[in-house]
Design a protein around this nucleic acid. Structure first.
Length: 161
DNA sequence: GCAGTGATCATA
DNA sequence: ATGATCACTGCC
């Protein structure tokens, strides 16, 4: 499956968090794809570094990094090992905005590089909401004015709930 | 409209 | 060692 399809397939699924014995969850409603070494909006565009290493790893792991010294961003790694791709989870039905989302789910650098599975305390369940084409919007990505010809590509997906 | 905030990365 | 940059948010 290609990266854009992977991104769309996360919509309507439930993000799950085990934190201090409690279960936090809500339905994923907004995602962005970052696709491969040629994507000028992606951290992987200038090659592998210590920070973006999880993007180059196998799918099914988390890539979490600190943005503007303040907000943690949650990404789900997709694609074959060696091919840098990830899906930024921007919003759920409860929380709008990627920084507020990680705060709500108590996500930080501690989750970086961990597996998306109950064992890590952070995972994604199968579709909880039926996604029809007319409920899904496709838009350009946010916050990458420097990405030139990649800036306005339709790589952001929103689910109306 | 723009300041805050600090890790990360390139340059040296 | 230093400086620029930044997949955001909230307040002006």
């Amino acid at each position: 499956m290609n990266t854009l399809k992977e991104a769309q397939s996360l919509l309507g699924r439930r993000l799950m968090r085990r934190w201090r014995g409690k279960l936090i969850s809500s339905v994923i409603t907004e995602v962005e794809a970052y696709d491969g070494p040629m994507d000028k909006g992606s951290h992987a565009f200038r090659g592998q570094t210590k920070r973006n290493a999880p993007m180059f790893g196998p799918s099914g792991f988390w890539y979490v990094y600190l943005c503007y010294g303040v907000h943690w961003m949650l990404n789900y790694v997709v694609g074959d090992e060696g091919y840098p791709a990830a899906i930024l989870i921007r919003s759920t039905s409860d929380v709008r905005g990627p920084g507020k989302l990680t705060a709500h789910f108590h996500i930080s650098g501690a989750q970086n590089g961990t597996m998306a599975a109950p064992t890590s305390g952070l995972w994604i369940e199968d579709r909880a909401v039926h996604v029809t084409k007319n409920k899904m919007k496709t838009l350009p990505r946010v916050g990458i004015p420097y990405a030139q010809d990649w800036k306005d590509r339709p790589m952001r997906f929103i689910l109306d709930v």
